[in-house]
Protein backbone atom coordinates (compact mmCIF):
# COMPACT_ATOMS: atom_id res chain seq x y z
CA UNK A 1 0.00 0.00 0.00
CA UNK A 2 0.89 3.65 -0.38
CA UNK A 3 0.94 6.15 2.44
CA UNK A 4 2.63 9.46 1.75
CA UNK A 5 2.28 12.64 3.75
CA UNK A 6 3.21 16.10 2.56
CA UNK A 7 3.80 18.83 5.15
CA UNK A 8 2.16 21.30 2.82
CA UNK A 9 -0.72 20.56 0.49
CA UNK A 10 0.51 23.53 -1.56
CA UNK A 11 3.26 21.35 -3.05
CA UNK A 12 0.82 19.02 -4.80
CA UNK A 13 -1.54 21.89 -5.67
CA UNK A 14 1.30 23.67 -7.47
CA UNK A 15 2.40 20.53 -9.30
CA UNK A 16 -1.13 19.91 -10.56
CA UNK A 17 -1.57 23.57 -11.55
CA UNK A 18 1.70 23.34 -13.46
CA UNK A 19 0.71 20.41 -15.67
CA UNK A 20 -3.08 20.21 -15.85
CA UNK A 21 -3.37 22.33 -18.99
CA UNK A 22 -0.81 20.20 -20.79
CA UNK A 23 -2.00 16.75 -19.77
CA UNK A 24 -5.54 15.60 -18.92
CA UNK A 25 -5.08 12.07 -17.57
CA UNK A 26 -1.86 10.50 -16.34
CA UNK A 27 -0.38 7.86 -14.10
CA UNK A 28 1.27 8.85 -10.85
CA UNK A 29 3.82 6.06 -10.49
CA UNK A 30 4.53 5.33 -6.84
CA UNK A 31 7.58 3.28 -5.90
CA UNK A 32 10.46 3.26 -3.45
CA UNK A 33 11.99 6.37 -5.02
CA UNK A 34 8.86 8.46 -4.51
CA UNK A 35 6.07 9.57 -6.81
CA UNK A 36 6.84 10.11 -10.50
CA UNK A 37 4.90 11.11 -13.54
CA UNK A 38 5.72 11.22 -17.23
CA UNK A 39 3.23 12.29 -19.86
CA UNK A 40 3.02 13.83 -23.30
CA UNK A 41 0.52 16.43 -24.43
CA UNK A 42 -2.13 15.32 -26.95
CA UNK A 43 -0.18 16.59 -29.94
CA UNK A 44 3.07 14.87 -28.85
CA UNK A 45 5.01 18.11 -29.02
CA UNK A 46 5.81 18.36 -25.32
CA UNK A 47 6.57 15.99 -22.49
CA UNK A 48 6.37 16.60 -18.76
CA UNK A 49 8.34 14.61 -16.20
CA UNK A 50 7.73 15.10 -12.48
CA UNK A 51 9.44 13.53 -9.51
CA UNK A 52 8.56 14.04 -5.87
CA UNK A 53 11.28 12.16 -4.02
CA UNK A 54 10.65 10.26 -0.80
CA UNK A 55 12.31 13.14 1.12
CA UNK A 56 9.37 15.32 0.11
CA UNK A 57 7.16 13.14 2.30
CA UNK A 58 7.18 12.24 5.96
CA UNK A 59 6.32 9.46 6.38
CA UNK A 60 6.62 7.75 2.98
CA UNK A 61 5.62 4.14 2.65
CA UNK A 62 5.17 2.26 -0.62
CA UNK A 63 5.52 -1.53 -0.47
CA UNK A 64 5.19 -2.25 -4.15
CA UNK A 65 4.92 -0.26 -7.37
CA UNK A 66 1.50 1.32 -7.78
CA UNK A 67 0.28 3.30 -10.79
CA UNK A 68 -2.43 5.78 -9.84
CA UNK A 69 -4.33 6.68 -13.01
CA UNK A 70 -5.68 10.14 -12.32
CA UNK A 71 -7.77 12.70 -14.15
CA UNK A 72 -5.96 15.94 -13.26
CA UNK A 73 -9.11 18.08 -13.45
CA UNK A 74 -10.70 15.81 -10.84
CA UNK A 75 -7.61 15.96 -8.66
CA UNK A 76 -7.59 19.73 -8.90
CA UNK A 77 -11.25 19.89 -7.82
CA UNK A 78 -10.45 17.90 -4.70
CA UNK A 79 -7.25 19.82 -3.97
CA UNK A 80 -9.20 23.08 -3.98
CA UNK A 81 -10.66 21.84 -0.70
CA UNK A 82 -7.20 21.86 0.88
CA UNK A 83 -5.58 24.90 2.46
CA UNK A 84 -2.02 25.55 1.30
CA UNK A 85 -0.51 24.73 4.67
CA UNK A 86 -2.69 21.71 5.44
CA UNK A 87 -0.96 18.40 5.98
CA UNK A 88 -1.87 16.22 3.01
CA UNK A 89 -1.81 12.43 3.21
CA UNK A 90 -2.19 10.26 0.11
CA UNK A 91 -3.28 6.67 0.66
CA UNK A 92 -3.96 3.82 -1.74
CA UNK A 93 -4.22 0.03 -1.63
CA UNK A 94 -1.93 -2.14 -3.74
CA UNK A 95 -4.43 -2.54 -6.59
CA UNK A 96 -6.50 0.55 -5.94
CA UNK A 97 -9.84 1.73 -7.32
CA UNK A 98 -9.54 5.02 -5.46
CA UNK A 99 -6.94 7.40 -4.12
CA UNK A 100 -7.68 8.61 -0.61
CA UNK A 101 -6.65 12.16 0.31
CA UNK A 102 -6.75 13.51 3.86
CA UNK A 103 -6.27 17.21 4.59
CA UNK A 104 -5.46 18.09 8.19
CA UNK A 105 -5.21 21.57 9.57
CA UNK A 106 -3.07 21.68 12.70
CA UNK A 107 -4.68 24.91 13.88
CA UNK A 108 -8.30 23.97 14.21
CA UNK A 109 -8.26 20.19 14.30
CA UNK A 110 -10.18 19.98 11.04
CA UNK A 111 -9.84 16.75 9.10
CA UNK A 112 -11.19 16.47 5.57
CA UNK A 113 -11.19 13.20 3.70
CA UNK A 114 -11.76 12.64 -0.01
CA UNK A 115 -11.59 9.69 -2.40
CA UNK A 116 -10.91 10.09 -6.11
CA UNK A 117 -11.86 7.33 -8.49
CA UNK A 118 -8.87 6.05 -10.43
CA UNK A 119 -8.73 5.08 -14.08
CA UNK A 120 -6.72 2.58 -16.12
CA UNK A 121 -4.30 4.54 -18.25
CA UNK A 122 -2.18 2.77 -20.80
CA UNK A 123 0.73 5.15 -20.97
CA UNK A 124 3.87 4.93 -23.05
CA UNK A 125 7.06 5.69 -21.20
CA UNK A 126 9.79 7.35 -23.19
CA UNK A 127 13.47 6.97 -22.41
CA UNK A 128 15.05 10.39 -22.01
CA UNK A 129 18.77 10.21 -22.78
CA UNK A 130 21.31 12.12 -20.73
CA UNK A 131 22.27 15.04 -22.90
CA UNK A 132 25.22 17.39 -22.76
CA UNK A 133 23.58 20.63 -23.80
CA UNK A 134 25.23 23.39 -25.79
CA UNK A 135 23.92 25.97 -23.32
CA UNK A 136 22.31 25.90 -19.90
CA UNK A 137 20.74 29.09 -18.62
CA UNK A 138 19.44 29.64 -15.10
CA UNK A 139 17.25 32.70 -14.67
CA UNK A 140 14.39 34.00 -12.51
CA UNK A 141 11.24 32.03 -13.28
CA UNK A 142 9.11 35.19 -13.11
CA UNK A 143 11.32 36.85 -15.73
CA UNK A 144 11.00 33.87 -18.07
CA UNK A 145 7.23 33.92 -17.60
CA UNK A 146 7.05 37.61 -18.37
CA UNK A 147 9.16 37.31 -21.52
CA UNK A 148 7.07 34.43 -22.86
CA UNK A 149 3.82 36.26 -22.16
CA UNK A 150 5.02 39.53 -23.68
CA UNK A 151 6.38 37.95 -26.86
CA UNK A 152 3.32 35.72 -27.24
CA UNK A 153 1.28 38.90 -27.71
CA UNK A 154 3.19 39.45 -30.98
CA UNK A 155 3.94 36.01 -32.31
CA UNK A 156 3.28 32.32 -32.01
CA UNK A 157 6.96 31.38 -31.95
CA UNK A 158 10.13 32.62 -30.29
CA UNK A 159 13.73 32.27 -31.24
CA UNK A 160 16.07 31.71 -28.28
CA UNK A 161 19.75 32.45 -28.76
CA UNK A 162 22.24 31.70 -26.01
CA UNK A 163 25.74 33.16 -26.17
CA UNK A 164 28.45 33.95 -23.64
CA UNK A 165 27.21 37.49 -23.01
CA UNK A 166 23.55 36.73 -22.61
CA UNK A 167 20.37 35.02 -23.72
CA UNK A 168 18.15 36.64 -26.33
CA UNK A 169 14.48 35.91 -26.89
CA UNK A 170 13.10 37.36 -30.12
CA UNK A 171 10.00 37.09 -32.23
CA UNK A 172 8.41 38.45 -35.38
CA UNK A 173 4.71 38.92 -35.86
CA UNK A 174 2.15 40.69 -38.04
CA UNK A 175 2.22 43.89 -35.98
CA UNK A 176 5.98 44.01 -35.60
CA UNK A 177 8.82 42.34 -33.79
CA UNK A 178 10.25 42.15 -30.29
CA UNK A 179 13.37 41.02 -28.50
CA UNK A 180 14.42 40.72 -24.88
CA UNK A 181 18.03 40.10 -23.92
CA UNK A 182 19.16 39.11 -20.46
CA UNK A 183 22.83 39.72 -19.87
CA UNK A 184 24.69 37.22 -17.79
CA UNK A 185 24.77 38.59 -14.24
CA UNK A 186 25.60 37.04 -10.91
CA UNK A 187 23.60 38.67 -8.12
CA UNK A 188 25.51 37.75 -4.99
CA UNK A 189 23.01 39.28 -2.58
CA UNK A 190 19.94 37.82 -4.28
CA UNK A 191 21.13 34.69 -6.13
CA UNK A 192 17.59 33.92 -7.35
CA UNK A 193 17.73 37.07 -9.47
CA UNK A 194 20.91 36.00 -11.29
CA UNK A 195 21.14 35.00 -14.92
CA UNK A 196 23.83 32.35 -15.20
CA UNK A 197 24.89 30.96 -18.58
CA UNK A 198 26.95 27.80 -18.88
CA UNK A 199 28.03 27.62 -22.49
CA UNK A 200 29.68 24.88 -24.50
CA UNK A 201 28.82 26.55 -27.80
CA UNK A 202 26.44 29.30 -28.92
CA UNK A 203 23.04 27.98 -29.94
CA UNK A 204 19.86 29.35 -31.49
CA UNK A 205 16.52 27.53 -31.68
CA UNK A 206 12.88 28.32 -32.37
CA UNK A 207 9.99 27.17 -30.21
CA UNK A 208 6.23 27.51 -30.04
CA UNK A 209 5.31 30.15 -27.45
CA UNK A 210 1.97 28.52 -26.73
CA UNK A 211 3.81 25.69 -25.00
CA UNK A 212 6.33 27.89 -23.21
CA UNK A 213 3.52 30.04 -21.78
CA UNK A 214 1.91 26.82 -20.62
CA UNK A 215 5.09 25.59 -18.92
CA UNK A 216 5.38 28.91 -17.08
CA UNK A 217 2.36 27.86 -15.01
CA UNK A 218 5.00 25.97 -12.98
CA UNK A 219 6.64 29.27 -11.96
CA UNK A 220 5.20 29.10 -8.45
CA UNK A 221 7.22 25.92 -7.84
CA UNK A 222 10.56 27.70 -7.92
CA UNK A 223 12.07 31.20 -8.02
CA UNK A 224 14.43 30.09 -10.75
CA UNK A 225 14.10 28.11 -13.95
CA UNK A 226 16.79 26.28 -15.90
CA UNK A 227 16.70 26.21 -19.70
CA UNK A 228 18.90 23.66 -21.46
CA UNK A 229 19.39 24.04 -25.20
CA UNK A 230 21.11 22.13 -27.97
CA UNK A 231 20.60 22.15 -31.71
CA UNK A 232 18.08 19.58 -32.92
CA UNK A 233 17.10 18.23 -29.51
CA UNK A 234 14.12 19.17 -27.35
CA UNK A 235 14.43 22.18 -25.09
CA UNK A 236 14.53 21.20 -21.40
CA UNK A 237 12.89 23.54 -18.91
CA UNK A 238 13.36 22.57 -15.30
CA UNK A 239 11.68 23.86 -12.15
CA UNK A 240 13.41 22.44 -9.09
CA UNK A 241 11.50 21.81 -5.90
CA UNK A 242 12.95 21.17 -2.46
CA UNK A 243 12.80 17.40 -2.98
CA UNK A 244 12.05 16.91 -6.61
CA UNK A 245 11.42 18.62 -9.93
CA UNK A 246 9.04 19.32 -12.74
CA UNK A 247 10.73 19.12 -16.15
CA UNK A 248 9.21 20.04 -19.50
CA UNK A 249 10.65 18.97 -22.83
CA UNK A 250 9.61 20.78 -25.98
CA UNK A 251 10.40 19.59 -29.49
CA UNK A 252 12.02 22.36 -31.56
CA UNK A 253 10.51 23.73 -34.73
CA UNK A 254 12.31 22.36 -37.72
CA UNK A 255 13.13 23.66 -41.17
CA UNK A 256 13.46 27.31 -40.17
Amino acid sequence: MLEARLEQAAVLKKVVDAIKDLVQDCNFDCNDSGIQLQAMDNSHVALVAMHLKTDAFSPYRCDRNIALGINLASLQKVLRAAQNDDLLTLKAEDAPDVLNLVFESAENDRIAEYDIKLMDIDQEHLGIPDTEYAATVTMPSSEFQRICRDLNALSESVSIEAAKEGIKFSCQGDIGSGAVTLRQNNNVEKPDLSTIIELNEPVGLTFSLKYLVNFCKASSLSNTVKLSLSAEVPLLIEYKMESGYVRFYLAPKIGD
Binding site: M40, S43, H44, V45, A46, L47, E124, H125, L126, G127, I128, P129, S157, T206, S208, V233, P234, Y249, L250, A251, P252, K253, I254, G255, D256
Partner: peptide, 14 residues
Protein backbone atom coordinates in the same frame (compact mmCIF):
# COMPACT_ATOMS: atom_id res chain seq x y z
CA UNK B 1 7.48 29.85 -38.90
CA UNK B 2 8.90 26.37 -39.17
CA UNK B 3 7.30 22.99 -38.82
CA UNK B 4 6.68 21.71 -35.31
CA UNK B 5 8.77 18.69 -34.37
CA UNK B 6 7.32 15.65 -32.60
CA UNK B 7 8.75 14.76 -29.21
CA UNK B 8 8.52 11.04 -30.00
CA UNK B 9 11.04 11.41 -32.77
CA UNK B 10 13.62 12.51 -30.18
CA UNK B 11 12.91 10.11 -27.32
CA UNK B 12 12.60 6.37 -27.74
CA UNK B 13 9.81 4.24 -26.32
CA UNK B 14 10.93 2.19 -23.34
Amino acid sequence: GGQQGNIMSFFQKK
